[in-house]
Structures are given as C-alpha cells and as structure tokens.
Write a protein that binds this DNA or RNA. Structure first.
Length: 425
DNA sequence: TCTGGGGTCCTAGGACCC
DNA sequence: TCTGGGGTCCTAGGACCC
C-alpha cells in the first residue's frame, strides 16, 4: 500500500476572521457573526466563546449579553466570505494541485510526496503564507487519512502549544490524541451517533477506533464503519480533486417579516428562482424538476409547510420559464390566512445545458432564450448584481431578510472599498 | 439435498457536514 | 416579537434488470 499523507487546512472561526481582516479594531475583541436573517450565532471569536456565547444560539437569546459585554455583532456577508475563501484556496493551491476544496473554509491537500520530517515545516509554511497573503489564520492537521487530519486540525486550533500545526502521522502521537478526544468530536459522528455510541460504552475516539467495525457497521451505518477504518489509518474517504457536478440547486430564505398574500409569496419565489437559475447557468446546467416549498414559523401556532413538485418538459435554465412553473407551484400549496416565514425552490434532474435533449412540442425558442440569459448575466456581472432583473421577483421586496449589521463588501464592490486615511506628517 | 449475484430504481425522512 | 442556508449520503425492502 502506498503511503498517504494528507493535510487538513481549516480556517479559524472563518467569518469572524474575514471581518477582522478589514477592521483591525476587531483584532483581539469579542466578535460574532450571525446567520441569514440575523437569526443565530454561527461564528465566534475566541474572546466571544470565553464570554459564554454558545454556537448556534438564537441571537435574541444572547443579544443582551452581547450588548453588556461590548461584543461586536455582524450579519453574514457571503459576498465577502466567498471572495476571501477563493483567496485562501488559491494560496493553498500554490503548495500542490492535489487539493480537495471541502467547504468554504476547509481543504485537504495531498502531501504524500513529502518526507516525514518536512511535514510540520510545510504545515507551518502554509499557515504563514495564508496569513500573510489573506489575513486569515488557519490550523493544519497532518495524518494518513482525512478523519485523522481533520482531528489534527481541530486539536491544533485548541492548543496554542502546537503553533497551528498538529502531526498525527506517528502512530503513538495519534493514539495519545485519540484517547483524549470525546467520540462526539470525531468528524462524521454527529449528535445522534455520539449518543448511541456512548450508550454502547464508546466514549473516546480511541475506543471507537478499537471497536468491532463489522458489528457497528451493521448496527449503526456503513459510515461508522468507514470512520473506524479512517481512525485506524486506513483511508476510506478519497481526496476529491475533481468535484463531480452538483446534483441539486437550492435557494431559500426566511422572510424579514411574515408574509400572508399569495402575490408576495409568488414574488419571493420568483426571486429565489432567479438566483437558482443563475447558479445553473454558471455551472452550465439545466434542470428537469422544480420543487417549490413554503412554510410558516417552526415555533409558533398554526404550523404549515408544503411543497409542490413540477416536472419540466425540457431541461431548462431559462429564468422566465422557471418563474412560470414556480408560480403554478405556489398556487397549488398556498393556503390563505397563514403567516409564512420561509419559502424556497429546489432544482433537480440536472443535465449539461449544452447537450440537453430538445422537446418535440417545445414552444420556447431555445437559441434566443440562451442568448437572452447570456446577455442578462453579462450585464449583471459587469454592472452589478440585479442591474437587470425580472419584475415578477418584486420591486419593493420588503419581505427580504434582515441584515442590519452587514459589513461592506470590501473586495467585490467598487463603491464599498475600504478607505484609508493616513495620519498627517 | 443443493435454487446466483450484482446492479439500479423507488420513496421520504434522517443524519451529517460546513 | 425574535430560532439560517446549501449540500451529500444513507436507510429499508421490493421490483426489476441482465
């Protein structure tokens, strides 16, 4: 078997770090970033963690704590985080083309070509380079499998002594780390599995590694079996250097206020369809199934949620056509007298846009439709998102989600560039 | 005596990840 | 008053295919 060494590079509280890059006053201050619609806390600086802000806490429940402690609070700014992610990943790509971009703030790199004594040094160099070029601090774990590398990165993040890099290629070091890791902290062991494992007497990652793999595969899931092998240093999760094309596109939002009329619901759904269709076209895909869904709040009275599935006769990414079907879908599931809090669309059955099969009775001139969408996308790319948009997606849109504490899009909008004032003299 | 093996699809919901 | 969004994979048993 060929020796494999992977690095997991994980950005430290990524969204908070992005905000800090352009706002040095936040450097050692407590900072949190909220989810869409200013709903929950989804990123916390170490200082905010120390002040007792829990991950995932609804903002209303920690709002007074934030105010009392002077914690800086930001709405999500995905334009900024997406662009910063691109910079981090492009920096990492300088180290090796064998890189698996796992999420907005994480990547796995193949370091099998390096000798053992070069591993930690390379990890430190990656860390220093990303910090210097992008301003984002990262943690690095090095190990023979993804699961162990990920664990290494988590430990690196928590222990200052590691200076950001943890090497678990050595079997004794790995065993030491596994013995001190609760099973719930293992990648792909979530809340439910952790509970079932603890009930079965498996509390640490080391106990999981040494458990009966066949029995647990059968009793829990094949995923658990894979995790056990991964903890033993036997790779089951290959490096995905070439991502397979996506299988679905989703666009949905909670409303900033509740929505009751069919007209406004249609408007919002048309807006989500426009965004979803843009994603399709960016990936050169076309959809054959459209799902529209609506729901009231999850916590109050009068709960309702429903969805409508519409099959599209010809694979399409043509916005007005998708809007037509989506409105039909809303008509099927809309109930009067309810306070809707969320709506969205999903697209499935994705095929490559170029070689889609035409329909015998197709009424749309596909050539013209493609040219129109291409023009629309070009104008919006050049002049700013939504310079051209469909009126069906609403003009006022006062149902839009809250984002009252959003930072400027420092890196993606000319009118929001950071302005520096130099001191005199 | 002795009755294959490997694959896909279906469905809705659940689990997991960030 | 106020609780995110976008993904992937797995499950289970039967139907169906070669």
């Amino acid at each position: 078997v060929r020796r494999q060494v992977l690095a997991c590079v994980d950005c430290n509280n990524f969204y908070v770090s992005c905000e800090r890059v352009f706002n040095p006053k936040l450097a050692r201050a407590p900072v949190v970033v909220l989810s869409n619609n200013d709903g929950c806390v989804i990123s916390r600086s170490e200082e905010a963690k120390a002040l007792g802000v829990p991950m995932g806490a609804p903002f209303f429940s920690v709002r007074s704590l934030c105010e009392a402690q002077g914690i800086a609070v930001f709405s999500s700014n995905y334009a900024l985080y997406g662009d910063m992610s691109r910079r981090v990943m492009e920096t990492l790509e300088r180290f090796t083309p064998e890189i698996d971009l796992y999420s907005i703030d994480e990547a796995f790199l193949d370091l099998s070509q390096l000798t053992d004594d070069a591993l930690v040094e390379t990890g430190r160099e990656m860390r220093a380079t990303v910090l210097r070029w992008t301003g984002v601090p990262v943690s690095v774990g090095v190990a023979p499998t993804k699961t162990l590398a990920k664990l290494g990165a988590t430990i690196a993040k928590r222990s200052p002594k590691s200076r950001g890099v943890v090497n678990l290629t050595n079997a004794r070091h790995a065993e030491y780390a596994l013995a001190r890791t609760p099973v719930r902290d293992v990648w792909n062991i979530g809340r439910h599995l952790a509970k079932r494992l603890t009930t079965a007497g498996i509390d640490t990652a080391l106990q999981l590694r040494d458990a009966d793999e066949r029995a647990l595969s059968r009793r829990m899931s094949v995923g658990v079996g894979r995790t056990i092998f991964e903890l033993r240093g036997v790779s089951c999760l290959p490096l995905a250097v070439c991502k397979p094309t996506r299988k679905s596109v989703v666009c949905s939002r909670s409303f900033g206020r509740s929505v009751e009329t069919r007209a406004e619901l249609c408007e919002s759904v048309a807006f989500y369809v426009s965004r979803a269709a843009e994603k399709l076209r960016r990936d050169k895909l076309a959809a054959t199934v459209l799902v529209v869904f609506v729901s009231t709040g999850r916590f109050g009275e009068d709960q309702y949620s429903n969805s409508a599935v519409l099959s599209l006769p010809v694979p399409t990414n043509f916005t007005p056509e998708l809007i037509r079907y989506a409105r039909r879908g809303v008509g099927r599931i809309y109930r009067e007298g309810l306070r809707y809090k969320k709506a969205g669309v999903m697209l499935f059955g994705l095929a490559r846009a170029s070689n889609s099969q035409g329909g015998l009775f197709d009424k749309v001139d596909r050539g013209r439709a493609d040219r129109l969408m291409q023009m629309l996308d070009q104008v919006n790319a050049r002049m700013g998102a939504e310079t051209l948009r469909y009126a069906a997606a609403g003009l006022r849109r006062d149902w839009r989600m809250l984002c009252e504490r959003r930072s400027p899009c420092y890196t993606t909008r000319w009118d929001e560039l950071l302005i520096l004032r130099l001191p005199r003299g």
